[in-house]
Write a protein that binds this DNA or RNA. Sequence first.
DNA 1: CTGATTTGACCATT
DNA 2: AATGGTCAAATCAG
Length: 322
Amino acid sequence: MQAQSRLGVSGIGLGAGSGEEEHEAVVRELTRGHELTARLRAEALLALRGKGQAEATATFILGEVSRTFTVCLSIMATAGAGTSSPRRPETPPDSAVSVGAPPLRAREDNVPRKRTLTSSPYDDGFQWRKYGQKRINNTKFPRSYYRCSYHRERRCPAQKHVQRHSAAAAAGDGDDVPPLYAVVYTHEHTCQDSSPNTDLPETTPDYFLESPSSLRRRGAQAGAATQQQQQQVVNARAAMEERERQALVSSLACVLQGKQCYDDTAAAAVGAAAAATPVVVDGGEGLDVTDYDVTEPMVFWGAPFGDEGNNSYGATDVDTVF
DNA sequence: CTGATTTGACCATT
DNA sequence: AATGGTCAAATCAG
């Protein structure tokens, strides 16, 4: 593919070019591979959506491939850190790049944010629920606001804002290049941290147990469910999710061992749980499928991005800067 | 019937 | 006042 020819011209052959050039070439090719893997992943997930084990297997394997690229890039970044010349930050794959343009001013709320540019903003391994959409000044496409689907029942604070990036799409290689979207993530997911209901307060507000629309509809009715009934619902959900998780673990164990898994129950559950359920392998070590997402290693959590510029993380960036 | 999405209104911040 | 972010009633979809 293109990568090979590029390797050739960049003189990465034995003894050719400086070490720094070689380093940059390797990073460039790894980045390219990472990017292509992300696109393949998006395509595969689209094609295999709802296909149960096949979907889970593809998710897992492509996640592993992606992770491999990530590890290599990480190693290369570490190796390159000692070089004398100042290195600009690695350019992550365009399928999930840290948005490089104008640094963002810290917000009052001090909420950690990360920005990515991706062609598959909805296949990030988490389940999201849209809660708003807004037209942003001087941009062609509206911005959509999403919250983690477990925002309510597990009080997961994760949010993301998705806005199509028109300039990047227009500058693409052709019609077959998928449009890019700027995604801003705020807060980390906590919905996978622990058993779902242990950290709920004794008096869990109705808000966290039932959907707003459902609450509204039932609000007029007299008999709201007792807290005990609500807790039973939470426990039941947690038990169901735990069963799904166990099924996913056993299925992925089959995959890891190169065996076909014929457990229908497991296979069925995998389809439902693959996207958002952390996988725990035998040693009890967390193996979160979502960690393999290309967005993870190339962006970071921490203090809000940047310390200057405007307060609208991405308003103008998305449509005009790229 | 229930959960998800849409969309205009409202609020907070600059 | 302008703008972005969120809320919540209305609506849609399975």
